[in-house]
Design a protein around this nucleic acid. Structure first.
Lengths: 211, 211
DNA sequence: ACTAAATAACTGACCAGTCAGTTATCAATG
DNA sequence: CATTGATAACTGACTGGTCAGTTATTTAGT
């Protein structure tokens, strides 16, 4: 150990971000219960005690992770829906492909898995997810659908069901990647799935008058 | 304690089933890691030690639960697909509604959630699920789709994608019920979702020549 | 009497959260 | 331009509780 090299540095501003990033990794790998604070601390290059200088409890840290992983992306979705005045077919095409891209690149997949996994033992988390993500995304999509229905562009029917039918396959794809591929399932091109899905969703599986 | 009443009875045959049933409850409530063997034993009316007379480890018990919850239902799906020679529209209608019904009544929902939750820490489980459920269900559906495509009934396109698009919304609905409703989200009629979904999936969202 | 089912007390490992002590940093002082 | 305090960031060993898995012992059944 060189004498001039300090064992550690005081970096009050940088710590929280680094800790949250490390926590995201570990939580995504292990889930909430199995994640060890010692691991998170080690990856953040910090001692366990330091975590408690910035976060009150493990769950507090978990919630910070969820919020951080969410907020940048949710804004992007709402902004993308500003292209609302185009015909529904076009809006939905760009929206779905963009969503697929987001789910491929961002941490949303692992975080979603995490929320599903821990929802029973940590309902607060599921509530955060519901209020901050699900409600808002669903509101954007049902809004688009209702307006398109009013314009006579798309069929009647519960807009909420339509919305779930639109994003359901993407969620399916994400879970396929997160859960099954690591275990040996065939990989999946999420964007290709999104492209094919939106086309058939718009025009239907059936060819012409096949009842 | 009455002297004539034995404290317990030897019931070698009945125990495993009772233990698995109790384990299903507790695992579904808490997830794998948070489930305590003492709880499971108590619900099965047995001591913790007795569990180890019938199952080697906690994970062993978990796998037994998954297998038990799965096998009856998977057979039903494959049997239902014996109605294969009807037009695709009809087969898919009955199949999807039946699947929705199954997901509402059986333990598949909670078990699926469980598998998703614990897949990283217990990959063996995800593998069991993949091999015993996903592969088989997907094979049935892609088979139907390929034949319908060959007959010119439905559009070309990757049958696997079509299949995922068909069941994705159901999975979405199940997770909605399992994760979000307990936390305050609006309830969801899974069968109604399935009905509306299959109709629009077949004929498309767009009304006539709206591009 | 004997066997095997079942119990209940026990062990050992693990880990979230705590806290007394250590050390970097910086402002004040000479 | 040192030197000295004062402060707050940070450490790491420790604690208390939990729980999977084990085992010595008790009890049912034949």
């Amino acid at each position: 150990m060189l004498p001039g090299q300090p064992k550690w540095r005081r970096r009050k501003d940088a710590r929280p971000g680094e800790i949250v990033a490390a926590a995201l990794e570990v939580f995504a790998e292990k889930g909430f219960a199995a994640a060890r604070l010692d691991d998170i601390a080690a990856r953040a290059g910090v001692s366990k005690g330091a975590l408690y200088l910035y976060f009150e409890t493990k769950q507090d840290l978990f919630e910070a992770v969820v919020r951080d992983a969410i907020s940048p992306n949710i804004a992007a979705v709402e902004a993308a829906a500003q292209a609302m005045d185009l015909p529904f077919a076009q809006v939905s095409r760009t929206l779905l492909v963009r969503a697929a891209d987001m789910m491929s690149t961002s941490a949303i997949g692992p975080v979603a898995k995490m929320v599903i996994a821990e929802s029973r033992n940590f309902p607060d988390l599921a509530r955060v997810w519901h209020d901050a993500v699900v409600i808002r995304v669903l509101a954007v999509i049902t809004g688009l659908i209702e307006r398109a229905q009013a314009r006579g562009e798309i069929r009647p029917g519960d807009p909420r069901f339509h919305a779930l039918a639109l994003i359901g396959p993407l969620l399916m794809g994400v879970l396929w990647r997160e859960v099954l591929v690591p275990v040996g399932a065939e990989p999946l091109d999420l964007t290709a799935l999104a492209r094919q899905h939106i086309e058939t969703a718009l025009t239907g599986l059936l060819i012409e008058g096949a009842r």
